[in-house]
């Protein structure tokens, strides 16, 4: 803890960037008071995102099996858990989890970002020569919001249909095809997914560090996992708009 009053001139010259009293909130809320705790939250919510994005991509592959298959899958999402759970009940549970995760992830990201900016108020005047920090790691704060904007646009397009040229509720295959027949949409989807790829490439490696999964026997695999994972997601997702644009799927 920073001392209440400085005991030397050397100490007096240093101002803490945050003087936060130890959190008295009950566990696990107290975790969110610290940056390391927030990173745990980001990692856990990130994992939820990874699971979703994987399932979503794999599910969407049904596009290649034709309208019946895809529509059937979409319907399956809604009737998931039947006959025990009412229609869409489980879906809403998943949606809530995803929403809470996204909100937490984004809030933690921005709150850490502002802390980090306060931690270096005067920037380096000469050019930095980075060795390890790569393009992906340094642009997390840009690829993240791009993905966020994309999610919003994407929901407008394919879930709520507001920006879809010919939205038909329940006709998922149709909705996708008409959307991707617009070239701007294709470009936006592709660009956003490349951004997502960068985000995942760093994120899917980084999360292991954040939650302390570090074992000499596994460390080599972490980077490999992130690379394969990010490539697979990007490849799968990018294939859809391109396939439509090229007329492979119509």
């Amino acid at each position: 803890m920073a001392p209440a009053s400085p005991r030397s001139t050397v100490e007096a010259a240093v101002e803490p960037i945050s003087r936060r009293p130890a959190s008295t909130a009950p566990w696990p809320l107290n975790l969110y008071a610290s940056a390391v705790g927030k990173k745990w939250v980001m990692a856990v919510t990130g994992v939820i995102g990874l699971l979703f994005i994987t399932g979503h991509m794999v599910g969407n592959l049904k596009i290649y099996l034709g309208p019946t298959e895809l529509n059937h899958y979409a319907e399956g999402l809604r009737t998931f858990g039947a006959p025990f759970a009412p229609r869409e009940a489980i879906l809403w549970v998943i949606r809530s989890v995803l929403t809470v995760a996204l909100v937490l992830h984004v809030h933690a990201a921005f709150s850490l970002w502002t802390t980090n900016r306060r931690a270096r108020p005067v920037a380096y005047a000469s050019r930095r020569d980075y060795i390890a920090a790569n393009y992906a790691s340094r642009t997390m704060i840009w690829t993240g919001p791009i993905v966020l904007l994309f999610i919003f646009a994407h929901l407008m397009d394919l879930t709520w249909g507001a920006t879809n040229p010919d939205f038909v509720s329940g006709e998922v295959y149709h909705n996708v095809v008409v959307s991707f027949q617009r070239y701007p949409a294709v470009i936006i989807y592709v660009a956003a997914n490349v951004a997502l790829g960068f985000h995942l490439w760093h994120g899917a490696w980084s999360l292991f560090q954040s939650i302390g999964v570090n074992n000499p026997y596994l460390n080599g695999l972490r980077r490999a996992f992130a690379t394969v994972f990010a490539l697979a997601i990007v490849a799968g997702n990018v294939s859809f708009p391109i396939a439509v644009a090229l007329g492979i799927v119509s």
């Binding site: 803890m1 610290s34 390391v36 990173k39 802390t115 931690a119 390890a132 920090a133 997390m140 302390g212």
Partner: peptide, 28 residues
């Protein structure tokens, strides 16, 4: 955390470190 920024696992530190301390310790 009262004085410094937070880690987003850039890994730059371990290369700057004159003792080559590994970011493994950060995970621990």
């Amino acid at each position: 955390e009262e004085y410094f920024g937070s880690c987003t696992n850039h890994g730059e530190c371990q290369y700057a470190c004159p003792k080559g301390i590994s970011i493994d310790v950060i995970a621990y």
